[in-house]
Simulated assay, not measured.
Amino acid sequence: MDLTTRLKEEARAQGFTLCRICGPDDIPEVPERLRAFLAAGRHGQMSWLEDRASWRGDPRVLWPEAQSIIMLGESYTPGHDPLEVLGQPDRAAISVYAQNRDYHDVVKKRLKRLGRWLIEAAEGAPEIKVFVDTAPVAEKPLGQAAGLGWQGKHTNLVSREMGSWFFIGAIFTTLDLDRDAPESDHCGSCRACLDVCPTDAFPAPYQLDARRCISYLTIEHKGPVDEALRPGLGNRIYGCDDCLAVCPWNKFAAEAQEAKYQARDDLLAPPLAELAMLDDAGFRARFSGSPIKRIGRDRFVRNVAYAIGNSGDAALREVARALTEDADPTVRDAARWALARLPEEG
């Protein structure tokens, strides 16, 4: 059995759903696409996209010695309907990927184990580098080039085996491994992901304006959110799953087996009133080990205040009123906006 075949078997044994391989020169279209995205300002406040654009656009610049790129997909398909909570306006909607442990930690450990296996199994002392979403690597184009899936009209990767619900990891290596064929587009005439977006974040199919995307607004955007966009947030306080959840290819995806990806009971649909009262210590304790922790208490409570303002629930007026005295000016602004939108109790 050749090394590439053994590698793919070991990847499955380590818990990855899919393992495919491409080369560092297989995404020649990315630099120009990235330049156009940045030139249009669609990256918003994500200056890190601009800072290392040359690395992100070309893996050969990131690591010239790399000969092969191993792309791994790990399913996190939920066992519940992630859109159901949107019908409970006094509860918080948290993106599926953030309802338990931070996937960066889980996936990176798997990648390192697989990388160590590869070094031991190969001849010639190959080198490796592992990446999970925190380095300037074009994971989605590389995933398509390797055959994991294709970038759908919502710009996320879609897999025939895993639908839209999967994490992506990459192992760069100096080994010259057999490459897989790229995946072709299977969206057809479907527009489900485009039409469901509450804030019209897709200027056209296969294009995203992050400045209007709820995931960007609730996670990356600092300071007050544009008032015109706040109603579209609904009760989504961390991320948004709408465009992923409506993808028809999800019907082929099996529920994730990794316990660390299965939703914690207290994060499925937590009460907004409970989250609004979190101080910094309470926030850190509740979200220890969660990706939510990285946005900090103030940005998180800002999002909760917007959700309270969108709830239409008069019972939340006192919660909003309390936040108008918050130490953070952006939270105070969000709370005043919320209070002005809530009906009087009667």
Rank of each mutant, 00 (worst) to 15 (best):
G188T: 05
S189V: 14
D185Y: 04
Q207G: 00
F202C: 01
S184D: 15
P205L: 14
H186Y: 09
L175A: 04
E183H: 13
D178K: 15
L175E: 01
Y206K: 02
C193Y: 01
A204E: 07
Q207P: 00
C193S: 07
C193E: 04
Q207Y: 09
C193N: 07
L208Y: 07
R179H: 14
R212V: 04
S184G: 15
L175H: 08
D176I: 05
G188L: 04
D185F: 04
R191I: 11
C187H: 05
R212M: 03
D178L: 14
D200H: 12
V196F: 08
L175Q: 03
P198T: 09
L208C: 01
L175K: 02
D209H: 13
R191A: 12
C190I: 03
A192L: 10
S184I: 13
A192C: 11
A192S: 15
L177Y: 07
L194Y: 04
D176M: 13
V196T: 13
C187Q: 02
P198L: 03
A210V: 07
L208H: 01
L194H: 05
C187L: 08
R179G: 02
R179F: 12
A181H: 14
T199L: 01
R211T: 12
E183T: 05
F202D: 00
R179W: 13
R179M: 11
D200L: 07
D178M: 08
R191S: 10
F202Y: 15
Y206R: 06
D185V: 03
R179S: 07
C197H: 11
A210G: 04
Q207I: 01
C197V: 06
A181F: 06
C187Y: 01
P205E: 04
E183D: 12
L177H: 06
P203W: 14
T199C: 03
P203D: 00
C190H: 02
A201F: 04
D209I: 09
